[in-house]
Simulated assay, not measured.
Amino acid sequence: MRIGIDLGGTKIEGLVLDKDGTERARLRVPTPQTTYEDAITSIVDVVRELERQVGTRCSVGLATPGAISPATSLIKNANSTRLNGRPLHRDIEHALGRDVRMANDANCFAVSEATDGAAAGCQIVFGVILGTGVGGGIAIDGRPITGAQAIAGEWGHNPLPQPRDDERPGVRCYCGRMGCVETWLSGPALRRQFAERTGRDMRATDIAEAALAGDTAAADQMELYCDRLARSLAVVINILDPDAVVLGGGLSRMTQLYNRVPELWKREVFSEPDSIVTLLLPPKYGDSSGGRGAAWLWPDA
């Protein structure tokens, strides 16, 4: 059996999958807000408890924010900043006394949905995280693609494609660049844009619900959001040509995305409109995909 651990900023969630992908145990604990070493201890404790519950030693995969730098083997680009510059992979393996496979959480999301999730059976899958940030991961034949800089799939820190006059130069992203896709498509960005246009402060998913209920201002905002998402994903499709794009994160619950965005990306994708077969799909496993994908980093366990 295989254990998958999803290391988040506020929670550590572990689960056990058997050879058929059936979940056999699950455990969630708060992520320690104290030290890096305490986080290592909590991960080890979760693994030990899950193995106690299922009565056997398991393979271990870990989904983590950020990525392992190919140059230094240290964590980089993690929004849980105390992980940055740390040899997390080495330290977890040392603490557990065994090999551990580790990948970025967005890559694990893509692996999960490509293996036995919404895009099961698809060769090339792009997994999108739309939440407090905008992330992405790539799975090909169910395996994560990391890349030379360990940034494969990081579409959120490219500029918004084909910006209109009122979209230039955009707002400054935390990465230091102007007008990143993340500054247009994250949940906080949608909330900010709607407040600027209407003076109404609403969560992103509430804006989507209001639009479905007939709120004209909300519907206009959602049309802008769908247009920007379509433009941004069209660039990914033109480069990667995936069989499926699976949306994850809190904004994946905005149901209008799945019909409207594929209609809008027809204008942008380098293909005849009737030949665009890439699917835009909601996730099968939602918040559990990170842990499931981490477990599937050991496909033959």
Rank of each mutant, 00 (worst) to 15 (best):
Lys266Thr: 14
Gly176Cys: 10
Arg231Glu: 08
Gly4Pro: 08
Ile237Glu: 12
Gly21Ala: 10
Ile12Trp: 07
Cys180Leu: 03
Trp296His: 08
Arg90Lys: 14
Ala120Asn: 06
Asp99Glu: 15
Arg48Thr: 15
Pro163His: 02
Asp300Gly: 14
Gly137Asp: 13
Arg101His: 12
Leu224Trp: 11
Leu251Glu: 04
Leu50Met: 11
Thr115Gln: 10
Arg82Met: 07
Ala95His: 06
Gly156Asn: 03
Val128Ser: 11
Gly127Ser: 04
Ala114Lys: 09
Ala195Asp: 03
Ala195Tyr: 12
Asn238Lys: 02
Leu185Lys: 02
Leu279Pro: 03
Gln53Ala: 08
Arg192Lys: 12
Thr35Ile: 13
Gly176Pro: 06
Leu96Ala: 10
Cys58Ser: 05
Cys58Arg: 01
Tyr225Phe: 15
Glu167Val: 00
Gln33Tyr: 07
Gly14Phe: 02
Gly249Arg: 13
Arg292His: 09
Ile12Met: 05
Ser289Gly: 05
Ala218Phe: 03
Leu88His: 01
Ser232Trp: 00
Arg2Trp: 02
Gly214Met: 10
Gly248Glu: 04
Ile129Trp: 10
Gly290Phe: 13
Arg191Gln: 12
Ser73Tyr: 09
Arg292Gly: 09
Gly176Asn: 07
Asp227Ser: 05
Asp99Ser: 11
Glu113His: 13
Gly135Arg: 01
Ala301Pro: 04
Tyr285Trp: 15
Leu233Ile: 11
Thr41Tyr: 04
Pro188Ile: 07
Glu263Ser: 06
Gly153Ala: 11
Asp227Tyr: 00
Gly136His: 07
Gly4His: 04
Cys58Gly: 04
Val269Thr: 05
Asn79Met: 00
Gln162Cys: 12
Ile40Ser: 11
Ala295Leu: 12
Lys19Met: 13
Gln149Leu: 14
Phe126Cys: 01
Gly170Asp: 04
Ile239Val: 15
Val47Glu: 13
Asn158Met: 14
Val261Thr: 00
Gly249Trp: 04
